[in-house]
């Protein structure tokens, strides 16, 4: 081991975004606009999955040992 290992890395703070955004109902608690007939409430929350994947991938990539 060269430098002491650490989990301190500013990139990890980015993980806050996909944790907080899905917990704000004001963003998605609506029927319109629909997508393929699916109300906003449902399709936007499914879209947050992609947000979560994108952020965790980015953080994983930027914090690799």
């Amino acid at each position: 081991m060269d430098a002491p290992r650490s989990d301190r890395n500013p990139w990890y703070w980015l993980l806050v975004v996909p944790v907080v955004v899905p917990l704000i109902p004001a963003l998605f608690n609506s029927i319109e606009p629909r997508l393929f007939g699916i109300p906003l409430f449902y399709w936007l929350q499914l879209l947050f999955i992609l947000l979560s994947v994108a952020v965790t991938l980015l953080v994983h990539w930027r914090t690799r040992a």
């Binding site: 989990d7 990890y12 993980l15 806050v16 975004v17 996909p18 944790v19 899905p22 917990l23 409430f41 449902y42 929350q45 499914l46 947050f48 999955i49 947000l51 979560s52 952020v55 965790t56 953080v59």
Partner: peptide, 24 residues
């Protein structure tokens, strides 16, 4: 109805939330 959809945000936030915890 909509209340049951809580399972989606629940399983969205869990991974970024626990990533740091679980590696430790």
């Amino acid at each position: 109805g909509a209340m049951g959809f809580f399972a989606v945000p629940y399983t969205v936030i869990v991974y970024p939330l626990v990533m740091l915890i679980l590696i430790r």
